[in-house]
Design a binder for these strands. Structure first.
Lengths: 283, 283
DNA sequence: ACATCAAATGTAGTAAAATTACAACTTGAC
DNA sequence: GTCAAGTTGTAATTTTACTACATTTGATGT
């Protein structure tokens, strides 16, 4: 946890002198981390042990340990960490907040991922005869993106954003097929139904969704992504970004698993695309 | 600059014993920041002054200062510095690398953004009679996502991933319309043509693309996103993620600009969606 | 108003950590 | 082999942080 935040929240616990120390540190944290306990004590007009006690009150081992925590808090870019967009925010503020909260969400998502499951999913994908990506609403664009990625791999890959087409596609699926269903909440009815249909045809159903959701229960394998819920109105769903990054991970795993020959093919696809582009030098 | 990166780059400057210190630190940086110079010296099988010299070689004031730098580097998310996926990487490695490189790309992208332009684009979007989002390939799913976002705002919004439909749509555009064109390279021929058509009809053309590209030249306003180029094969395009986050920023700016009444409407749309979902308690 | 006690703060001494100065040892060139 | 440049370690010094204890402060009850 950010120690600067902790300081401002712990004001009540501090004694009068300790509060003096807190003020000096908050006013100039950058100086604080480069000071010795003696200089900091002088700056705060207190004795050295008071500074030491102040550090311990914040659950650090002592002054050097406190400095370490402080340094880490400062490194995280913003001394102050309110990442929620507020009505009064100007463009620079909300831009910063959105980017930062997105990055934070990615970090959380990464830590929640189960690598073993990813590995098994990559396994299944490489062995699939046909891969389908389905999602609705915001997750539709993620499925769309997955289509783009895997299409380049020259694998039979399918994507629909229409419920009926998704359904029909699944009704024709077979044992060698892999169906990837994307849904943040895992509570979209028609997706759950599609999972059931696909499972009924012995297809492998992989869910990219939150665990313990109705959708998760119908899947052969679930990659669960914990993403901080979008608590406030303005905040956009970082879940999509996490899902996309996960798609990147799967695609990368896929490429690695397929070996060198396969990657040469990938390069050919890239070259073909070039023809539809203006030359870089022509600029 | 990240000191871990610096260590791995400075290998050449180190002497034999200093390299031992480097190894121990790289192997377990988390332990290093909590060790004294004596323990670290013992762990590396060198003397204390050697550790100290090691620190100075990295342009730090001494051991405590070095620990501070190290702590900050660790806080910044990236303990391991090589973000490029390698053939030998296992699932845990490539997962980590992809997430980290994506976050790094977001950070770079954020810093390259011009807030003033964002503000003007938000202005234009709020005043638009109709908003169109067009992209091709990987950028198509970004446009798709933008459709989803802005559709909820109850604004006339249009999206096509078909070249001809995009063209036709632009031919019918008028002065009050805003056309948003998304392309990482800015060199996709048909998108450039579409920009020309739309401009010909006096529509406002906004490009989300790299600056100085052919597409950028045809736009009324360009939001340029600098994203580290995907130098190696496996690495997926972080540009999409940055573009999506930018869309989030624009959507947020849009909501803020529209005021309270508008946000109530947004909430209504959210509630309507709930009906197509399984209840949370039903689980 | 004063005695009493607990909490807060500081003083002085101690222990630990980091740095310096210097000596001993490598290594490679001649 | 020897000299010089560079490297490493030892031991002393200095700086820094911590501990134990003494003093002060301020609040409470008589």
């Amino acid at each position: 946890m950010n120690i600067l935040e902790k300081i401002s929240q712990s004001q009540a616990l501090f004694s009068k002198s300790e509060r003096k120390v807190a003020e000096v540190i908050m006013a100039n944290p950058q100086t604080a981390i480069h000071s010795s306990i003696a200089t900091l004590a002088k700056m705060s007009n207190v004795s050295e042990p008071t500074v030491n006690r102040f550090c311990r009150r914040l659950d650090t081992k002592g002054f050097p340990d406190f400095k370490l925590h402080l340094a880490q808090s400062l490194a995280n870019g913003t001394p102050y960490v309110n990442r929620h967009v507020e009505e009064s925010d100007g463009p620079d503020e909300y831009t910063k907040k959105i980017f930062e909260s997105t990055m934070a969400a990615l970090e959380v998502a990464r830590q929640s991922l189960d690598v073993n499951i990813i590995n098994r999913v990559v396994d299944l994908l490489t062995q699939a005869q046909k891969i389908s990506f389905f999602g609705l609403g915001a997750s539709a664009s993620v499925a769309h993106d997955a289509l783009n990625k895997f299409f380049r791999f020259n694998v039979p890959v399918v994507y629909f954003d229409d419920i009926l087409m998704q359904r029909m596609s699944c009704m024709n699926s077979s044992e060698e097929d892999v169906v990837v269903l994307i849904s943040h909440t895992g509570r979209t009815k028609s997706l759950v139904e599609i999972a059931q249909i696909a499972r009924g045809n012995d297809a492998t159903v992989i869910g990219i969704t939150s665990k313990d959701s109705p959708l998760a229960k119908e899947c052969s394998l679930v990659i669960s992504l914990d993403v901080p819920e979008d608590t406030d109105m303005y905040m956009p769903m970082a879940s999509r970004i996490a899902q996309l990054t996960l798609i990147d991970v799967l695609a990368t795993g896929f490429t690695l698993r397929r070996g060198t020959k396969f990657r040469e093919n990938l390069k050919r696809v890239k070259d073909t695309l070039r023809e539809s582009r203006y030359d870089k030098k022509q600029g």
